[in-house]
């Protein structure tokens, strides 16, 4: 299962990088969302999958799934929500001000 997931994560990253290189602001924002999925799954996968019960002691199992990556990812999910929100709002404001969502046209002023 880890092999399969690694390949899936590779695909997610490929799509993400491909989207990042597009000209459209929305696709870039969507790419960050996908990127965070990829990273979360990567963290979980690297510690091994389905090896024991969910990390809740009431189950009284012999082995539990590694709780540490889960704690990491839980934090990461919330943080990546914050990041997505900022990016979205920034692209929204950018569009409002510059009237374009084309990154090619948002390339900074000439005197830089």
């Amino acid at each position: 299962m880890e092999l399969l997931m690694s390949i899936v994560i590779g695909i997610i990253f490929s799509v993400t990088i491909y989207l990042f290189m597009s000209k459209n602001l929305l696709r870039v924002v969507a790419a960050t969302l996908l990127l965070s999925h990829g990273v979360h799954l990567l963290l979980i996968t690297m510690s091994g999958l389905q090896r024991g019960a969910a990390p809740i002691l009431s189950f009284d199992a012999d082995a539990y799934t590694d709780p540490l990556p889960q704690a990491l990812v839980l934090t990461a999910i919330v943080i990546s929500f914050g990041v997505t929100a900022i990016l979205l709002v920034m692209s929204y404001r950018t569009y409002k001000v510059h009237k374009t969502d084309d990154l090619e046209e948002l390339r900074g002023s000439a005197d830089e």
């Binding site: 969910a54 809740i56 009431s58 839980l74 999910i77 919330v78």
Partner: peptide
């Protein structure tokens, strides 16, 4: 604290 859930 004891089952799935929490502040987040």
């Amino acid at each position: 604290h004891n089952s799935p859930g929490g502040g987040f």
